[in-house]
Design a protein around this nucleic acid. Structure first.
Lengths: 337, 337
DNA sequence: GTGGGAAATGTTATCGATAACAATGCTCGC
DNA sequence: GCGAGCATTGTTATCGATAACATTTCCCAC
């Protein structure tokens, strides 16, 4: 387009070409009502001819707000957060927004404040905080009240604008599936307990067992890694009474799978297993893993909708969207032998 | 900090408090040499007292360039690109830059141009293009020559500023490792052949076999998924002469692993297997996977360094950095039985 | 056909920084 | 003790958009 050696055209260039004032060009650009149709077309033509594109910096300066959405996320290669981010970026791009990521090593107050400040420097139009732990929610105190904010995965009870997957229901589906296969009870390898996601899954697991009048075995809590899944699996593999395991994500399941394999306990013949996430590889585990899928795309789109809503209307409007989770049945569950 | 209800302080506020002109404040901020030490301190104090932070939009407007680096990447949850992105964001943040991601469904010219244009709208200070296929490199024609650009994973022969992992050497190490274990030859399940990464790994595989005077078996090419790895694995599992397999990434290896398992061919007893990437779960595959690790952090930092270099000096300076890959030996390789 | 009011357009101020130039102040040599 | 020359600081213009207000145009009712 703008392969000319000179600088890119500004609004006044368009105005000159169209024979109007720059303000009229601005009005056309912003879809103001009081512009004659004929003028509008003339301006549009001039814009097209020059390949004009508005300078976002200038606009941001005068309006005090950019076409940029800041995302705060933990720096991690975890499947969930990473999926979330790409999905959100796609949705935002479709709505004409750019996304600036600010990742943070730990979700503590200070790190989050620093990233939020960086985003505010850029005069972001809104913020999305992927806040899987309570400390992240606390950091919201740092965010000025007039900046639209949406949380993903935060505390469902916080009364802030928030989108999250129905972890409890997902876990219930997983546990119910195992009970229905005939298992007496279900063991759970959870994620870090300070994560809301973990808490929800633990709660769903515990409730379902209790409602069915089953004994609730001790909780094994881990981080999200295959390594810790393996460690937990080594314990579980030694206990013959363990016939059904629900892990808080698929990578934990992978670790458990290997531990069971090493002790000669076969899945699903001896032990049934259900994961969470439905990572793309899950159907190629040995055996293919029954798991719970989270609709990250839906979460991302819902978050964007909430954010855009806040930009138009009052920021700070609390609105909670809970996206359902879905059990994906494969071959890692069977009746107890 | 700026919890006051009013707007955040501007440079003139700082100037007034420090008893200097706003220009002097600007000079302090930009580390200009000719400011008296005493004045500098006074201004610094005023900045701290007010919690002043420069308005990036205003700066971008007048300099024509923001403190924002645009990254163009394919929208995918592949381990490599995703790792790349987070690592780069970290490095950029440390250098005081924000990162705007622009992901794209396909790496064709049009999609890339669109994303690049969006970034140019934001007046990015530089661009990083994660360009795994040739079509991405072609799209560089759209990028004005005065914008610093660094490619990651692009065509090593393109003569553009580029950082990439030494795919050839990585593949050579993998194949050599298998040959040294005593295997007659090594089969290869590659990624999509139009990817530079794939091409490099194929080349390294082929070269190493040829140099050792071994027969080069037919290439099995796939996408990067466990699903296609499984399909390729089903074929390979049926062929008794296959004793060593090198897959172009770990997820392919996972699929192969399952296919071999299903046909009762044991790894590494009957078949040896080497992957590529070293995803965190790789040591929890059954058996733990020998693979090749790519130093994504190094790639990201090198890319940033190149980019900053271009910003200071001439953009367009061609400079190629090749980051080594490293074989990680685990348990999926053994001598042929 | 004329006055009123809305629709359409133009003018000027503004956002908050940097750049270019102007104007001080200081040091030092003779 | 005075002027050259550099170090330091201030003034004004500028980037490219939107906002607020001013002005012109148009249409219609009376």
């Amino acid at each position: 387009m703008e392969t000319k050696g000179s600088r890119s055209p500004a609004m006044t260039d368009v105005a000159r070409l169209a024979g109007v004032s720059h303000q009229t060009v601005s009005r056309v650009l912003n879809d103001h009502p009081n512009v004659k149709e004929q003028t509008r077309l003339r301006v549009r033509a001039a814009i097209a001819e020059l390949g004009y594109r508005p300078n976002r910096a200038a606009r941001a300066l005068v309006t005090g707000r950019s076409q940029l959405i800041g995302v705060v996320a933990r720096n991690s290669m975890l499947y969930g957060p990473a999926s979330m981010l790409t999905e959100f970026e796609q949705a935002a791009a479709d709505a004409g927004f750019a996304v600036s990521v600010g990742s943070v090593r730990e979700l503590d107050r200070d790190s989050i404040s620093a990233v939020v400040d960086r985003h505010l420097d850029q005069r972001v139009a809104g913020l999305v905080v992927i806040a899987q732990v309570a400390s992240a929610t606390e950091a919201l105190a740092e965010i000025p009240a007039d900046v639209p904010v949406v949380f993903i995965d935060g505390d469902p009870a916080a009364g802030r604008s928030l989108v999250t997957v129905d972890q409890v229901a997902g876990a219930r589906a997983a546990v119910r599936h195992l009970l229905e296969a005939g298992h007496e009870t279900v063991w759970h390898v959870s994620g870090p307990t300070e994560w809301f996601d973990s808490a929800g899954r633990i709660q769903g697991w515990r409730q379902t067992l209790q409602e069915a009048g089953r004994e609730v075995p001790p909780l094994l809590s881990a981080d999200w890694s295959a390594a810790e899944g393996y460690r937990a699996g080594q314990m579980l593999a030694r206990m013959p009474e363990v016939t059904a395991i629900f892990t808080a994500n698929d990578h934990l399941a992978l670790g458990v799978l290997r531990a069971l394999h090493e002790r000669g306990r076969r899945v699903p013949h001896d032990v049934s297993l259900v994961g969470f996430d439905d990572v793309p590889e899950a159907s190629y585990f040995i055996p293919p893993l029954t798991t719970v899928r989270q609709a990250f795309g839906d979460v991302a789109r819902a978050a964007l909708t909430l954010l855009l809503g806040q930009m138009k209307a009052e920021p700070g409007a609390a609105d909670t969207v809970i996206v359902p989770a879905q059990l994906v049945v494969r071959e890692s569950v069977a009746p107890p032998s």
